[in-house]
């Protein structure tokens, strides 16, 4: 074994450090408070052409998740705080985020103009936990296109759910349950993913089949799909995580997608989103017929 002595030396690491690293569940189960939720939501939801295609390039601060504790975090936001205290003073609007239009100037720091109230429907109460991600976005269309394996227009034909092992990234049907138990609930769960079936109607980049699937971490915030999600992610496991900034896609509707290949060995191939905020454009795409049209979106 290479570095045998290093291994032996590592074995001499003090118990207190091993315990500190092993004892994360107790720390990580604490609730977190997201600060400046409004600013982040606005920064992540700049309207373009009537859609909610998010431009993270507009982020100039206030986008991180801050926590009550100086502790490791899972990025799960205490939804009661995010939707309650932090959103006070925000004008009430339709809970369907796709109908909202935000002046792009608000994303640059004018918090008072923000008109987004996200995940505020009754469906959220108790069942879903809002998740925000602190990720870099792409500044230009070319960067986003370059980061994508597939740029397509496609119709959503089905929505389903699956559990994936967080370590291997594989569906749990095919992998060993790595031994997480209730006592390590912070990461004992396999990750719930929402799978979207797509029929490709036009492709602008990539070698795309007519039918493909892409997956998004977390559930789908809707009573309609709650039972299906709860079969995999039962009540004991806790609220179902849902990305705040990922659009609520509807079956039968057509969108523009920026995807990267996850598993080409499956049939159909499975894709991931490029990032949470920029992978789906849900504005008017009727005029988008070429990659140049895609570039015009920015």
């Amino acid at each position: 074994m290479k570095y045998e002595k290093l291994s032996q030396a590592l074995d001499g690491i003090d118990d207190k450090y091993l315990l500190e690293a092993a004892d994360i569940p107790a720390v990580a189960n604490k609730k977190y408070t997201f600060v400046k939720w409004g600013a982040a939501a606005a920064a992540c939801a700049v309207a373009l052409s009537g859609g909610t295609f998010a431009l993270y390039s507009a982020l100039s601060g206030g986008t991180g998740v801050q926590y009550e504790e100086d502790s490791p975090a899972l990025g799960v936001v205490d939804s009661s705080t995010a939707l309650g205290e932090e959103s006070k003073g925000v004008e009430e609007c339709d809970s369907d985020r796709h109908s909202q239009v935000v002046d792009s100037s608000t994303a640059l720091g004018e918090e008072s103009k923000i008109e987004i109230v996200e995940v505020s429907s009754a469906e959220d109460v108790g069942e879903f936990d809002s998740v925000l991600v602190d990720e870099e976005g792409y500044d230009t269309a070319q960067q986003l296109i370059d980061a994508s394996d597939s740029v397509i227009k496609a119709k959503v034909t089905g929505i389903s759910f699956a559990l994936y092992d967080p370590e291997s990234g594989l569906p749990t049907d095919n992998v060993y349950n790595t031994g997480y138990t209730e006592s390590t609930a912070f990461q004992s769960k396999n990750d719930l993913y929402t799978l979207y079936d797509l029929d490709v109607t036009a492709d602008f980049k990539g070698d795309n089949a007519e039918h493909l699937i892409f997956k998004v971490y977390g559930g789908y915030n809707s009573e309609k799909y709650l039972d299906g999600q709860r079969k995999l992610y039962d009540n004991d496991t806790g609220p179902i995580p849902v990305y705040v900034d990922f659009p609520k896609l509807q079956t039968g509707e057509e969108y523009l997608f920026f995807l990267k290949l996850s598993d080409k060995e499956t049939t159909p191939a499975i894709y991931d989103i490029v990032n949470v905020c920029q992978s789906v454009y849900d504005g008017d795409i009727s005029e988008i017929n070429s990659i140049d049209d895609v570039k015009e979106l920015f």
Binding site: K5, L6, Q8, A9, L10, D11, G12, I13, D14, Y17, L18, E20, A21, I24, D70, S71, P72
Partner: peptide, 30 residues
């Protein structure tokens, strides 16, 4: 290498880190 000496040094190094970095290091390498 003297493994005992290296162990002492590793513990000393860990003591200089903030908690998050220490957990990151120990989770990855131990």
């Amino acid at each position: 290498l003297d493994t005992k000496e290296l162990s002492i040094a590793l513990n000393g190094f860990l003591s200089t880190l903030d908690k998050d970095d220490r957990i990151l290091f120990v989770r990855r390498y131990w």
